[in-house]
């Protein structure tokens, strides 16, 4: 090749640099490495919805892990003689009698604080289980296609057709000892279909991208293609669905508890159920756990909304 080409390419190098750091603005800082995740995080930080929901969720997590920071009162032991259906003393902020007492003389405030753990644990646990199981199912169905896809998709359809709450109730009635794990298991067993469908769709789209062909042409192994190329590019919609469904699972747990099929122990659903019986004389027993439940569900749905806005490039 003649020398001309060499110089030609060198000028190309020079101008390539010049284009990203424009000659016209030499003072401008050179562009930094910006990943798509980084961009999304940047978007999130500037969104007020995210700010509000993040503060709420941080508070909920603190309550979950350190309930002792918020109250000294035991949520289980009550003093019937002293506190039977005692009215709230709203002036006594954060004290045991702040939100009143229930029919067994237990502090509603303490029970609301300690009830957070059950809700958050079930919410996070179920979401995690659902994301892993559904994600895996969706990935396998979408990536391998053909007969594997046919079988897994039909299986998904079958599970999708079963009424979610009814099925979990049926399962839970056969467990006398309903620990957190049992409830998570029952919810996850019927909740994974949505994630599986989202994942399958995303995998089928991504599978056709040229960069996947490029990796195959290089001789990349199947796990490498799945986890290095396809997974990172399908995660965004899955994360959005997962975040929103976190709130859904928390309210599902409360519903189950309300029906007497939830966790054994302190939980908002149980208290709402108990409070329902006293609604005429002591509205506060039901009111405060309900408010906490609503705030929690709202916080996760808002988080999901903010994450969707940040991750969905079409809305940009």
């Amino acid at each position: 090749m003649p020398d001309v080409t060499k110089t030609d390419v060198q000028t190309a190098v020079a101008t390539d640099g010049g284009a990203t750091t424009p000659v016209a603005a030499p003072a401008a800082k050179p562009e930094k490495s910006r990943s798509l995740w980084g961009d999304a995080w940047n978007d999130l930080r500037h969104s007020w919805i995210f700010g509000v929901s993040a503060v709420l969720i941080l508070l909920l997590l603190t309550i979950t892990f350190f309930p002792g920071l918020f109250t000294d009162t035991d949520p289980i032991k009550g003093d019937l003689a002293k506190h039977f259906l005692q009215k709230p003393k709203l002036g006594h902020v954060f004290s045991a009698d702040w939100l009143g007492y229930d029919q067994q003389g237990r502090s509603v405030y303490a029970r609301t604080i300690y009830g957070t753990r059950a809700s958050v644990a079930v919410g996070f646990g179920t979401t995690l289980a659902v994301t892993v199981v559904g994600g895996l199912m969706g990935m396998i169905a979408g990536y391998f296609g053909g007969i594997v896809d046919s079988i897994l998709s039909r299986l998904t359809d079958v599970f999708f057709g079963i009424p979610f709450l009814l099925a979990t109730m049926v399962v839970l009635t056969s467990f006398p000892d309903r620990t957190t794990w049992v409830v998570i298991g029952a919810l996850a067993a019927f909740g994974w279909t949505q994630i599986a469908r989202v994942m399958r769709g995303a995998v089928i789209t991504t599978k056709q991208a040229d960069y996947v062909h490029a990796a195959k042409a290089l001789g990349a192994s199947t796990p490498r293609i799945m986890f290095r190329h396809i997974l990172p590019n399908t995660l965004a919609p899955v994360i959005v669905v997962s975040t929103i469904s976190l709130g859904v699972y928390i309210s599902a747990e409360a519903t189950l508890s309300f029906l007497g099929l939830g966790l054994n122990g302190v939980s908002w659903g149980n208290d709402i159920s108990d409070g329902g019986n006293q609604i005429r004389v002591a509205q506060w027993i039901m009111l405060y756990p309900s408010i906490m439940l609503s705030i929690t569900v709202l916080a996760f749905i808002m988080l999901g909304e903010a994450v969707r806005n940040a991750l969905d490039p079409k809305l940009r």
Partner: peptide, 17 residues
């Protein structure tokens, strides 16, 4: 045997440096 693809917008994995 290597390949150069048509569309430079889809042939590079957007999540990789």
């Amino acid at each position: 045997i290597q390949m150069v693809f048509q569309d430079p917008y889809t042939s590079l994995n957007p999540r990789m440096t």
